[in-house]
Amino acid sequence: MSAPPLLALHGIFKRFGAVQALQDVELEIRAGQVVALVGDNGAGKSTLVKVIAGVAPADAGMIEWDGRPVHITRPHDARNMGIAAVYQDLALCDNLDVVGNLFLGREIHRAGVLDEVEMERVTLELLDTLAIRMPGVRRPVASLSGGQRQTVAISRSLLGAPRLVLLDEPTASLGIEQTSQVLDMVDQLRERGLGVLLVSHNMGDVKAVADWVAVLRLGRNNGFFDVTSTSHEQIISSITGATDNAVTRRQTHGWELEL
């Protein structure tokens, strides 16, 4: 245990009206690690992402960044620290091309005139280092496939040279081929030494790329596992909160078929 974790959350509470969305949540993410955040619907996964990204600041609790306590009250705070979030709905402008979307809100300009050449150069360079193939960076993103759109959204988050990337269900609604594209990209992020928090419903994805799995259940921590040494059943039962019920039996059966 040499360096302090990149991000550490202690005793996070978050309430929306009558709903206690998060209670006393702990989480640690280290640089060069992919931590999967799993849980049933309504377990508080997305809320936790929003807390870290500053979209919905925590009511109580301590956040440490590089071992120093910090306050994240606005999206701006998180961005300045080096946290980038990619949400499920991607938030791309379909009418703009890949370059336009990547630089949306932080265009490079010289004396008030957009520097398209420089933006295109940086885009091609970034896509190249990530080993992403695009049909053309001057195409409207509307013409891209779901997986390509996802990679555009993730690439966009990398432009600000973040140290931690939050991915909210990046593979939901993607096909097999496209999912593997996105997972390859997550691997790339880890190799670049970034911390990654991957929210996912898909155990297959979690097993494929994550180093650690953090389970949330009803807004509380319900386990933190090393992926390599933990069985599917163990994780599933933490998610559902029981080892023996209809859901686990079905799930277990399903996983065995897959294996």
């Binding site: 999206p75 701006h76 709905d89 991607l90 938030a91 791309l92 402008c93 379909d94 009418n95 703009l96 336009g100 949306l104 809100g105 932080r106």
Partner: peptide, 14 residues
């Protein structure tokens, strides 16, 4: 152009 494409995406960029 961004606003014409997606108001939400434009808003999130600040």
């Amino acid at each position: 152009f961004a606003l014409g494409g997606s108001v939400e995406a434009a808003r999130r960029t600040g």
